[in-house]
């Protein structure tokens, strides 16, 4: 019987992380940012039908970058998690923190146990009701969970976008101003023509289901 080669765990984790990072670096970025009355999610996305941003529950939205089939599987799992919880208990019992934790557990397990890690980063946003604060969680390929304040970026240019936005963002503005600010940050970081926008909001002023996709006309109108 042949013995498998010994690979030190440090090396194993380093290789996996490098592999995942390479995959994510190819993906276009997404930014989530608070505005007055809600949370905006803005993604660079040339497709009009394949979405990266999606509704999870009444107050919760999901955005994923990286390999499509992988973040799509996580999106579906997230919707199942939320709908199950809401059905078995009650609608107010579905919260972003629990969901982000579940994503973190899942991605962490996949990172250590699977042949190949997921090449994805996930953003979970929640709009607060009754004066509660909004929440933005970021989950990376290895299951690390970040709790961000004000805004959050994921994807290939996440670090640059974060530092660019940190200079511009002070406090929540109007929706249109927020779209403009994020779009300008994208333009500055990417240094090229943006291929197309996908945008959605969690509108804290609407009842029950707060998620709403912005139409291309609405996005275009925000720039005028």
């Amino acid at each position: 019987m042949s013995m498998p080669f010994y690979v030190p765990p440090e090396q194993l984790v380093k290789d996996r992380a490098e592999y995942a990072r390479k995959g994510i670096a190819r993906g276009r970025s997404i930014v989530g940012m608070e505005y007055v009355g809600g949370v905006l999610l803005l993604a660079e996305n040339p497709s009009r039908t394949l979405y990266k941003i999606s509704e999870i529950y009444d107050r919760i939205a999901f955005a994923g970058v990286g390999k499509y089939n992988e973040f799509e599987a996580l999106r579906v799992a997230g919707i199942r998690h939320a709908d199950l919880k809401g059905y078995l208990y009650g609608r107010p019992d579905v919260a972003a923190r629990g969901l982000a934790n579940a994503f973190s557990q899942t991605l962490g397990n996949i990172f250590t146990h699977e042949i190949k890690p997921y090449e994805v980063e996930i953003l979970v946003a929640e709009v607060g009701v009754n004066g509660e604060s909004n929440r933005l969680f970021k989950v990376t390929y290895d299951g690390t969970l970040y709790d961000e304040l004000g805004f959050c970026a994921i994807g290939g240019q996440a670090d640059l976008l974060t530092s660019t936005l940190a200079e511009r963002y002070q406090e929540p503005g109007s929706l249109n101003a927020t779209i403009q600010m994020v779009a300008e940050a994208f333009a500055q970081v990417e240094q090229r023509q943006i291929d197309g926008w996908e945008a959605a909001v969690l509108d804290g002023t609407s009842e029950r289901r707060t998620f709403r996709r912005l139409t291309q006309e609405e996005i275009a109108a925000a720039f005028t």
Partner: peptide, 12 residues
């Protein structure tokens, strides 16, 4: 599908 096997809190 790995998400199903390693449920980690998500429905299997």
């Amino acid at each position: 599908m790995s998400v199903d096997r390693f449920t980690g809190g998500l429905p299997a």
